[in-house]
Design a protein around this nucleic acid. Structure first.
Length: 460
RNA sequence: UCCCCAGUAGCUCAGUCGGUAGAGCAGGUGGCUGUUAACCACCGUGUCCGUGGUUCGAGUCCGCGCUGGGGAGCCA
């Protein structure tokens, strides 16, 4: 008989004569005449209750089943006599697939997130992490659906790159050179002898590739892993994370902001609808205000605020910041928090930043002083999206590269796009893990990615 | 990288003024009950993160280190 998933059984309207379920035991409660077994197969948050009668031939072994053991149960699904659940399985057979000994680290009680990080290979078996990673999976699907419904093409941008896009942080070097016997040239590693004949790194952004394809396919997006070798130790940073980067031809900054807002709203509403049960766990145990936060993000209009006005608001705030608010400096965490959590109490899109604090590819505004950049800031997380209208004018781009010390010869192909049929275009990057944090209320990024990579830590 | 905090049983923690450690949960045994992270009784559990020092004596005080966490910077 074919196995049926618990998710399907629990949502059934009618009883079933014979079903087979396979999963892991969460807890067992024994009676004189029978045992209650809570079984979970990961298909949903809820477990199903199995009644194992003491007349079963292997009942003595069943009594030894501890939390974490794997079993296959064949039986009838009937209405539960007890309170607390609609259905339960009356077992005709309980086949033990494997035992989990008492050394199984997960107990039927709450563990700290810190402890669970040390057993990241087992934590998806807990309610909380199971829910988080089901939501992660649903969100990945929702992202593809969102773009596909809007005619976007999915671009696979390279993971190994020779270019240092936007100098966005430290890079991970990729090499096949023998580190114990490094070929040298003039005292330095001879990168010409390396696999690609030059220095190569893991990508920090697929943006430049995406721009090339936006100017061919119209609207594209990338969605894949990204790497930053920054030595940052915060609850919002990991060295390997996933980024969503749409790039849209014939789109200006206003269109870019509209699209970013639409996307976050869509993904929030999608999660509220499709991940209801799992979300309720977070609303109950992680962040009591989660549902009203999500409601706010899904339905309110986001504030649009030029950088200059943001600085004015902060200066008039009458609040003493640790870092002074100064036109020409980037907004600090405390400034972003003030705007999103105190002043507006909703997502804020800050745009038109001074060119001095932004990379070369952002479009220069007519004031010759600011660029068409935009950051979406959300309460609790801070920057979740960073994007811009790209500089499509060849000469302006070239002079910006000169100003910022970027060598043109490495970007000849990028400049080609401005030589041949250049058009206004825009795009942004959304941190996938930060989105999951926002939607679940989980406070640490290490808890929304299966196996987090942080400085000095890559156990799994 | 900087600042702050923490590290005691498998897990979560307590440990007073410096006198060699104890609760709950988990585990084991028995009982009871259509139970709900069940309940009751009994049983076992320690490199007190490491290292050096102060002291008659250090889980406790001091130095250094390691690990974890929070905050900042950088950013998504």
């Amino acid at each position: 008989m074919e196995r049926i998933k618990i998710f399907k059984l629990l949502n059934s309207e009618v009883p079933a004569d014979q079903v087979v379920i396979k999963g892991w035991i969460r807890t067992r409660r024994d009676s004189k005449a029978f045992s209650f077994i809570e079984m979970n197969d990961g298909s949903c948050l809820r477990s199903i209750q199995v009644i194992a009668d003491n007349t079963l031939e292997n009942y003595q072994d069943i009594r030894k089943l501890a939390t974490g053991s794997a079993v296959a149960v064949t039986g009838k699904m009937v209405e539960s006599q007890g309170k607390g659940q609609k259905w339960e399985i009356r077992a005709d057979r309980v086949d033990i697939i494997s035992f989990a000994p008492e050394s199984y680290p997960l107990q039927k009680k709450r563990h700290t997130d810190e402890f669970l990080r040390t057993i990241a290979h087992l934590r998806p078996r807990t309610n909380k992490y199971g829910a988080a990673f089901r939501i992660r999976s649903e969100l990945a699907y929702a992202i593809h659906k969102f773009f596909r419904d809007r005619g976007f093409k999915y671009l696979h941008s390279p993971i190994i790159t020779g270019s240092d896009c936007e100098g966005a942080g430290e890079l991970f070097r990729v090499t096949t050179l023998d580190w114990d016997n490094l070929p040298k040239k003039e005292g330095k590693a001879d990168t010409a002898a390396d696999f690609f004949g030059q220095e190569t790194n893991l990508t920090v952004s697929g943006q430049l590739s995406a721009e090339m394809f936006a100017l061919a396919l119209g609207d594209v997006y990338t969605f894949g892993p990204t790497f930053r070798a920054e030595n940052s130790n915060t609850r919002r940073h990991v060295a390997e994370f996933w980024m969503v980067e749409p790039e849209m031809a014939f789109c200006d900054l206003a269109g870019n902001m509209d699209f970013a807002e639409e996307m976050i709203r869509y993904l929030t509403a999608y999660t509220m609808k499709e991940c209801k049960e799992d979300l309720e766990l977070f609303a109950k145990f992680v962040d009591k205000k989660l549902m009203s936060v999500l409601e706010n993000i899904a339905s309110s209009d986001y504030i649009r605020l030029p950088y200059r006005e943001a600085v004015e608001i902060l200066n008039k705030a009458g609040k003493k910041f640790e870092y002074a608010v100064d036109y020409g400096k980037d907004l600090q965490t405390e400034h972003e928090q003030y705007l999103t959590e105190h002043h507006f109490k909703k997502p804020v899109i800050v745009y038109d930043y001074p060119k001095t604090i932004k990379p070369f590819y952002m479009r220069l505004n007519d004031d010759n002083e600011t660029v068409g950049a935009m950051d979406v800031l959300v309460p609790g997380i801070g920057e979740i999206i960073g994007g811009s209208q790209r500089e499509e004018r060849l000469e302006v781009l070239q002079s910006r590269m000169k100003e910022t010390g970027i060598a043109e010869e490495n970007y000849w192909w990028y400049l080609d796009s401005r030589r041949f049929g250049t058009v206004p275009h825009s795009g942004f990057g959304l941190g996938f893990e930060r989105l999951i944090m926002l939607l679940t209320g989980i406070r640490n990024i290490r808890d929304v990615i299966p196996f987090p990579r942080t400085p000095g830590s890559i156990e799994f």
